[in-house]
Amino acid sequence: MAKPTRIDPADVLAVGDLLTDEERLVRDTVRRFADERIRPHIGDWFERGVFPARELAPELGALGVLGMHLDGYGCAGSGAVAYGVACMELEAADSGLRSFVSVQGSLAMRSVHAFGSEEQKQRWLPGLAAGELIGCFALTEPDFGSDPANMRTRARRKGADWVLTGTKTWITNGSISDVAVVWAQTDDGVRGFLVEPGTPGFTATDVPGKLSLRASVTSELAFDEVVLPADAVLPGVTGLRGPLSSLNEARFGILWGTVGAARDCYTAALDYAGSRVQFERPIASFQLTQQKLVEMMLEVEKAYLVALRIGRLKDEGAARPAHISFGKLNNVRAALDVARSARTVLGANGITTAYPVLRHANNLESVLTYEGTSEIHTLVLGETITGEAAYR
């Protein structure tokens, strides 16, 4: 392969050259969609606290990114790295966009795909893959996030039916979903249930006052003696292995997505520094600004390499939960540092929606917490390297 004649400031190590032709095609296709369809509007959506999910879902389905790493039922069956670069380009536009795709594909669809009956798969997966339907995944509760084993939502048998009672919160897509994958305690252990809107006793309300992930639908779901038929339960799994394995798939999307958010902040700061003139010269010519830009570039490239290595392991079937925790912990933290530093390069302009950096920084505060806090992933890695569990 010919040596590059020029270093790309957005990818100094040419990590993109390590992608296959197919992976680069996915990257470029999703980037084009984000540039043309999302970027012109995302500042306004964020400011108004809206996300046009019903409008965008069919477009994302046509793009092929909904459940793209699953096989059959209208899904593309793409590799892990291809899915990763799609997440990278989606989150470069906004974390809310990537969250929508992750929740739809890696949480809701993956749970049905892995643990559902054939009838459930045929009923839900094609429509979810096409974006004709929207799904959500309900595990977190008001009092139990990092400790789902003690969830209070419960399902009990009543003849052939199930009766579901409890509350879930911080549920992406919750109030707009056509199907909710709800995890609940039963006498047999944790089980997953498919709950449709309009079922008596099921209500969904949006969480108000968000300062982060504003271009995303976040809801609280309440279940008041909701009667579900026997075929509403996912038959293929009992216990926390079900929801936690799906969460691991979504975390993989996060460790890639945050590379995109970090890159977007870095390149915004780089472009701004080249055009912003102070003391009769561009601020890019000052040593302190160059130091900030170089530190940002280093973190972006290192995070990109981490994501690619974990993606290759996943495609080989060799990735373990600790690898995903490594990527989620490192890359979210790196992206937050890059976003905050980029904001200082932009000065006061950095706090407006005309530039993406503070929007990314606000979003990343949520990404740092959801699907495993930094503390939990630290303890996962601590147990991995010491052999000692420190959770209790």
Rank of each mutant, 00 (worst) to 15 (best):
D94T: 14
D94K: 05
D94W: 04
S95G: 11
L97W: 02
L97P: 05
S99T: 15
F100I: 14
V101R: 03
V101G: 06
S102N: 08
V103Y: 02
V103E: 00
S106P: 02
L107Q: 14
A108R: 02
A108W: 02
A108F: 02
R110P: 07
R110E: 12
R110V: 11
S111K: 03
H113R: 08
A114C: 13
A114K: 09
F115Q: 07
G116C: 12
E119Q: 14
E119K: 14
Q120F: 10
Q122S: 15
W124G: 07
L125F: 08
L125M: 10
L125C: 13
G127R: 12
A129Y: 06
A130C: 10
I134N: 03
C136S: 11
C136L: 05
C136M: 04
C136W: 00
T140K: 04
T140C: 11
E141V: 00
P142F: 00
P142D: 06
D143A: 14
S146Y: 03
D147C: 12
P148G: 09
A149F: 07
A149Y: 07
A149K: 08
N150M: 09
R152S: 05
R152V: 02
R152L: 05
R156N: 08
R157H: 05
A160H: 12
D161K: 00
D161I: 10
T165E: 08
T165D: 13
T167E: 03
T167L: 03
K168C: 00
T169L: 05
T169M: 06
I171K: 02
N173D: 15
G174R: 01
G174H: 04
G174S: 12
